[in-house]
């Protein structure tokens, strides 16, 4: 969980895989990589078994570029599609049981703060809408009430994609799914509103239609979670299998949904804004 841990013991280079050597030598560690540099540095995300053309994969890939310090980050996930890619990153990943992701993250973050006093460690929970809004709902809400300092990212594909298409709390009203043949009868949960009520310091809702924006939102959320308080990102990452979207149309669908109902929204507390400004001023002063 630091550059030192990732680097290879001298003399052991020949035993390491090509991918690992590339990552250590040409990876993003120690320097904040930009989205515009993608394709010319080795990414922390490796090959993974997620479906072709999955918008969630695109979002996860961009998230990994947005992380301010991948070498000082721990990811927490749970059952669901996202973990298929999250486990293929060179970032420590904790597979929480369904429902306890944010409880695990709370304990972990507190422990890391005690253990590493002079090095900020980031904890990022990344799970699906089912894992966070349905099954993990109580742990999510309580971590926000307690103002735990970590980031919660919801990969909102509006369905239980991994188990055959059951409706989730985040499914739109009326959506027809394999396991919801009559259409969903209830409204989509308002997680943004709930986050606002619980006093989350930074809330964002977005779609992966703008890569630079995704990376910058993730960066802001992780930085604010270090010092200020809980942060929440709700990202529309369509399931092209359960919603039968042909893969070439995945981004058209994302743009469509963004324009129709999802939009881009950012709610930032005054304290969080002041903290971000202080980081920018410190950066400019350094230059």
């Amino acid at each position: 969980m630091s550059v030192k841990n990732i680097s290879i013991t001298p003399g052991w280079e020949k035993y390491m895989t090509k991918e690992y050597l590339d990552l250590v030598e040409r990876g993003p560690y120690g320097k904040q990589k930009k989205v515009s540099e993608m394709g010319s540095f080795k990414e922390v995300l490796e090959e993974h078994p997620m479906c072709a053309g999955c918008a969630m994969t695109l979002f996860i890939r961009l998230t990994m570029v947005g992380l301010p310090n991948p070498e000082h980050t721990v990811l927490i996930g749970t059952a669901g599609c996202g973990r298929l890619a999250l486990t293929q990153t060179s970032i420590p990943f904790i597979y929480g049981n369904y429902g306890d992701t944010n409880a695990v993250a709370s304990g972990l973050k507190r422990g890391l703060e005690v253990r590493f006093k002079d090095q900020a460690k980031d904890v990022v929970v990344m799970a699906g809408d089912g894992g966070l809004a349905d099954i993990g709902f109580s742990a999510v809400m309580h971590s926000w009430f307690r103002k735990e300092r970590f980031t919660t990212i919801m990969l909102d594909n509006e369905v239980y994609g991994n188990t055959g298409g059951q409706e989730s709390g985040m499914t739109e009203r009326g959506a027809l799914l394999k396991m919801a043949p009559k259409g969903k009868m209830f409204e989509k949960m308002d997680m943004i509103g709930l986050a606002q009520t619980s006093g989350v310091a930074y809330i964002a809702r977005l779609t992966p239609t703008n890569p630079t924006r995704v990376a910058s939102v993730v960066r802001k959320a992780v930085l604010i979670a270090r010092e200020v308080g809980p942060t929440f990102i709700q990202a529309y990452t369509s399931c092209n299998i359960e919603y039968a979207i042909p893969t070439p149309k995945v981004l058209d669908d994302a743009r469509d949904i963004e324009a129709k109902r999802y939009g881009f929204m950012e709610i930032i507390s005054d304290e969080a804004k002041a903290y971000l400004d202080s980081i920018d001023t410190a950066k400019k002063a350094k230059k």
Partner: peptide
Amino acid sequence: CRLCTQYCPEANTILYDNAAKTA
């Protein structure tokens, strides 16, 4: 433009050669 390198869902699949300026 380098847009394809940013929108590909797979990591390090569309690569970009800075010297030859091509993906």
